[in-house]
Design a protein around this nucleic acid. Structure first.
Lengths: 110, 110
DNA sequence: TCTTATACATAAGAAAATTATGTATATATT
DNA sequence: AATATATACATAATTTTCTTATGTATAAGA
């Protein structure tokens, strides 16, 4: 994902947010979008992404729809209602995380 | 640590930063300081903290000094020179992480 | 023809945490 | 005096999340 360990635990938030903006996306597309948006800083590995997508689906946060494009398989994921709600939570948690970490590393501003 | 998984991977950064500001601290003190600074948001568990301190010591980032206060054991940790350098790196990584995540969740501002 | 890109998947192992224990002393409460 | 809470360390079992490696398959480009 990156040389930095800080990204651990962030993948779900990233996936949910991207799907929140893009209605439906497939796995490979997510990896490419993240690479673009972060100018190469963050590379989502397949070994992390696919199990994460399967887990989100199993938890009922994502719905999947299989399509065949150019004779190749694609699995489009989209947020369920629950998934949309959970996206809000995850984004709040991210904002809170950033605030908390800034209080720790920059206590003068707190 | 918190209900949010985002803190996974942040503990080392937190420890190093606190020691960078406080010269020397012992484990229990770190847990209390973090609780104060984050107004209870973040509680460092012992099962996470002590192994992390031992690892940082083994890697040569921390020196340890045992003391007896009120007939109770304390292990004071302080940054080595290497540890001070690594603190700078970790803080840079945190800033980069925050920047990257903001580019992902708030692409309009990127 | 061979490499790279597209597109999925999983298994083995590592890393970092949680949860549950354990030991021991000091202080506060009932 | 007895009990609970706070202080102070530690580790073991388990879980979560990731990396690394591997596998399958088609399309496109050199």
């Amino acid at each position: 994902m990156s040389n930095s360990k800080l990204y651990k635990g962030s993948l779900t938030t990233i996936i949910l947010k991207l799907l929140n903006e893009n209605d439906k996306m497939y796995g490979y597309e997510i990896t490419q979008r993240v690479k673009e948006l972060t100018k190469g800083e963050l590379k989502i590995t397949e070994g992390a992404l696919y199990p994460a997508l399967h887990k989100l689906e199993a938890e009922g946060l994502l719905d999947v729809e299989v399509a065949k494009v150019d004779n190749r398989l694609r699995k489009y994921y989209k947020l369920t209602e629950t998934g949309t709600k959970e996206t809000v939570n995850k984004l709040e948690e991210l904002a809170e995380y950033i605030k908390t970490m800034q209080a720790l590393v920059n206590p003068k501003l707190a």
